[in-house]
């Protein structure tokens, strides 16, 4: 069977073809930072199109701050004003670390929907989808911090550490949250459904946040529980955040938090990458 040859292009057609086909060299392949930022933007765009997903960043911080201040303030500290000074740094910690859980379920939803298979076909740095998701979530955490702090100031919270102390506290919370996010990405790739990720995340987070020094001084707890609370990373973070806002933070307190961050990233970032390679 003979193949019919295409007729030769006339000069005009060739000129048109040259005009649409660029002769410039191909642009360089985007670097890891660029692609991660693009995926971070994608995370924020999802919020733009599904604003109800922002409920956990907007409604929850307000609810938690108001409820725990006024619900337990009188019963625990005798007055809501006194309790707010103790509670507020803890509420900041609890609110933001609770928000981190959605990272895993969102990632799992992407995995289930098959969008990750499309990302695989792109010539980009492989982990950028994960890193970008965590970076995008960083903006959500920051919004949560702003809401909690603004509301606390309205309610009467006055940080002795001033603006510098507050910024240091927020920085600590954000760094820890980014590190904790790797745990949820691991679960997001490990479990089958977003609901399973949410449920397991709650099992991890509820004991971590309640069995800590967020609400109550561990000295008032039974001995065995006080020991458990002392080993809890959330306790160390809350202690450092309280100290930063009170203007009494030490390098040791910050060091312990950063050590926990290093452990979380050191364990769960490689685990996430390995699962990502195996499953995608």
């Amino acid at each position: 069977m003979t193949e019919t040859q295409a007729p030769p292009l006339d000069e005009l057609a060739t000129a048109h073809l040259r005009a649409v086909l660029t002769s410039r060299p191909r642009p360089p392949r985007p670097g890891p930072l660029t692609t991660s930022l693009v995926f971070g933007r994608r995370t924020l765009l999802k919020l733009k199109h599904l604003p109800e997903q922002l409920i956990d960043v907007t409604a929850f911080p307000i609810m938690l701050t108001l409820m725990f201040t006024y619900l337990f303030g009188g019963a625990i500290a005798g007055s809501t004003g006194d309790y707010l000074q103790f509670l507020q740094p803890g509420i900041l910690v609890q609110t933001i670390v609770m928000i981190t859980m959605t990272t895993g379920s969102a990632l799992n939803a992407d995995r289930v929907s098959g969008v990750f298979d499309r990302f695989r076909s792109l010539s980009i740095w492989r982990p950028s989808a994960l890193v970008g998701a965590l970076l995008g979530d960083g903006a959500r955490y920051l919004l949560g911090c702003v809401i909690v702090l603004a509301l606390s100031l309205v309610l009467g919270f006055r940080p002795a550490g001033g603006l510098g102390g507050v910024l240091a506290a927020v920085a600590l919370v954000l760094v820890f949250s980014f590190s904790l996010g790797w745990l949820w990405t691991t679960l997001g790739l490990l479990l089958r459904t977003p609901q399973a990720v949410t449920s397991l995340s709650m099992f991890v987070m509820l004991p971590l946040t309640f069995a800590s020094n967020i609400f109550v001084d561990p000295k008032t707890m039974p001995g065995w529980l006080s020991s458990v609370v002392g080993l809890n990373p959330i306790t160390h973070l809350t202690t450092a955040v309280r100290a930063a806002m009170g203007g009494t933070v030490t390098s040791g307190q910050v060091g312990v938090v950063l050590l926990w961050c290093a452990v979380l990233v050191g364990v769960f970032a490689p685990a996430t990458m390995r699962l990502y390679r195996i499953r995608h």
Binding site: A75, F210, F215, M221
Partner: peptide, 27 residues
């Protein structure tokens, strides 16, 4: 659905233990 069972069964148990012992001494 193990995750659903877990959240309904273990979450309240967790609340019993956490609230009972964390707030038990101060309230």
């Amino acid at each position: 659905s193990m995750d659903l069972l877990g959240s309904i069964v273990f979450m309240p148990v967790m609340f019993v233990l956490l609230f009972g012992y964390v707030f038990g001494s101060v309230i």
